[in-house]
């Protein structure tokens, strides 16, 4: 990756931060816990990298670390989305 490649990634990062700020300031305090657990599940997106590391073919340190990362990320993703759904189900209006 040359310096311009890196710059493009930084562009995306900075713009996404702004989108995040805009979206999240509109979340009402009553939903702050589901926001945390739900966004937490989204940060499990790192599983995509873990899948690539774990599937390289030969068993190396990378593969082992990749498998552990898959376990961690799956707990994060599955646990996070499920528990958020459980909470959001309870929020009812009169």
């Amino acid at each position: 990756m040359d310096i311009f490649g890196l710059l493009m990634l930084i562009y995306v990062f900075v713009l996404a931060i702004f989108v995040g700020f805009e979206l999240i300031t509109k979340v009402p305090p009553t939903l702050h816990t589901p926001l945390m657990s739900g966004s937490n599940a989204i940060s499990g997106i790192t599983i995509v990298g873990a899948l690539l590391s774990a599937g390289l073919g030969e068993v190396t340190i990378s593969t082992i670390l990749g498998v552990v990362a898959i376990v961690f990320a799956m707990i994060n993703v599955v646990g996070g989305f499920l528990v958020t759904d459980r909470m959001l189900k309870m929020f009812k209006k009169k």
Binding site: I17, N40, I45
Partner: peptide
């Protein structure tokens, strides 16, 4: 979230960067 974003930089994957940045901002 920021850790996921940094991993996105490592793998040069925009989706990871975006998802991580959203969580980081939150």
């Amino acid at each position: 979230g920021l850790a996921a974003s940094m991993t996105g930089f490592v793998l040069q994957n925009n989706m990871l960067i975006i998802a991580g940045a959203l969580v980081g901002a939150s």
